[in-house]
């Protein structure tokens, strides 16, 4: 259960910090304005950043500029509902790193999620 592909946006919303931290993939939760609200331990490790430095910042302009384009950030603006898995390249610790991204946005949930699997 709670696999990268199986977990739902409602489950992500209801999970406590400890459970989120225990997931084997990165979890980033954003406000409708793009401010980081959730940043789990796996993503901390992958990116080499501490949660305290990331939460409260604007994700696409300060941490993830490589997603600030039509393939990721623009989709959250344009589409009312998203649940899509895409292949991507992140620059985790400045290394080009092929990853799979799962973009999640639902009409009834304000928060959007990006799941990152190495």
């Amino acid at each position: 259960m709670h696999t990268f592909e199986g977990i739902s946006i409602d489950e992500l919303e209801s999970l406590e910090w400890e459970r989120l931290d225990a997931l084997p993939y990165g979890v980033v939760g954003l406000s409708p304005e793009g401010i980081v609200e959730i940043y789990n331990a796996t993503e901390e490790r992958l990116a080499g950043l501490s949660r305290d430095g990331v939460i409260g910042t604007h994700y696409f302009s300060s941490t993830a500029q490589c997603m600030n384009n039509f393939m990721v950030a623009q989709r959250f603006e344009d589409e009312p509902e998203i649940d899509a898995v895409i292949d991507y390249v992140l620059t985790l610790r400045m290394r080009p790193t092929p990853v799979r991204l799962r973009l999640m946005k639902a009409p009834k949930v304000d928060r959007r999620f990006i799941l990152i699997q190495r």
């Binding site: 990116a47 950043l49 500029q65 490589c66 997603m67 390249v89 620059t91 610790r93 400045m94 290394r95």
Partner: peptide
């Protein structure tokens, strides 16, 4: 330092003489 590089508004790329990318920041990848 990582946060500094992640948030740098200019693209930074380190590469070899044959073009293989060693390090790259998010702005460059974008």
């Amino acid at each position: 330092l990582l946060q500094f590089l992640y948030s740098c508004p200019a693209g930074l790329i380190e590469f070899t003489s044959t073009g293989a990318i060693g390090m790259v920041n998010p702005a460059a990848m974008g």
